[in-house]
Amino acid sequence: MMPKVSEQAIAEYDAVAAGLVSAGVVRGSMFGMPCLKIGRKVIAGMYGDAMTFKLPPQPREKALSLPGVEPFDPRMGRPMKEWVLIPLSQSAVWPDYAAEALEYVRG
C-alpha cells in the first residue's frame, strides 16, 4: 500500500514537474506511484510526502547527508541502488535533485 500524500507534497511535486516540462519530462507511473520520465526512463517519483530521485554517486552521497534523506526502499527490504528518498521537509532541494536526475538518466 502506498503512503498517504499531503496536499503540500502534491503542490511541491507539481511544481517540480512543471519546471521540467520544457526539458521533455512527462508524468507517468511506476509501481503505482506518480513519477517523472524522460522517454521511457524514470528520473523521479513521489512516495508519500517525499520524492525519490535516481542519482549518480556524488549527488546521491550529498543528498544522503541532508536530514531525513535515506536510500529509497519501497518496502521490499532492499534499497534501490541509485535512488534516494528526500522528504517534504527538504522540498526546497527537490528541483535541484530533479535536474541532477534528469542529467544522469539522459547520460
Rank of each mutant, 00 (worst) to 15 (best):
M1H: 11
M1K: 08
P3E: 03
E7I: 09
Q8D: 15
I10F: 00
I10G: 00
A11P: 11
E12K: 15
Y13K: 00
Y13S: 04
D14T: 11
D14L: 06
V16P: 00
V16Q: 02
A17C: 11
A17F: 09
L20T: 05
V21L: 13
V25G: 01
V25W: 09
V26E: 04
G28A: 05
S29E: 15
G32N: 11
G32Y: 14
M33I: 12
M33K: 10
C35V: 10
C35D: 12
C35F: 02
C35P: 06
L36D: 01
L36H: 05
K37R: 15
K41H: 06
K41A: 10
I43R: 02
I43P: 02
I43K: 04
A44I: 12
A44S: 14
A44N: 07
A44D: 08
A44M: 10
G45E: 02
M46N: 04
M46Y: 00
M51N: 10
F53W: 13
K54M: 03
L55I: 05
P59S: 12
R60L: 04
K62W: 05
A63F: 05
A63N: 03
L64W: 11
L64N: 04
S65G: 15
S65A: 15
S65R: 13
P67C: 06
G68D: 09
V69Y: 01
E70I: 13
P71Y: 05
F72H: 14
F72A: 06
P74T: 10
P74M: 10
P74G: 04
R78H: 13
R78N: 07
P79A: 05
K81L: 10
K81G: 00
E82Q: 14
E82V: 08
E82S: 10
V84Y: 00
L85A: 02
L85E: 01
I86C: 05
P87V: 06
P87M: 02
L88W: 08
L88Q: 07
S89L: 11
S89Q: 14
Q90M: 13
Q90W: 02
S91L: 07
S91G: 05
S91F: 08
A92D: 15
W94P: 00
Y97H: 08
A99Q: 14
E100P: 05
A101L: 03
A101K: 06
L102M: 11
R106P: 01
R106Y: 03
G107S: 12
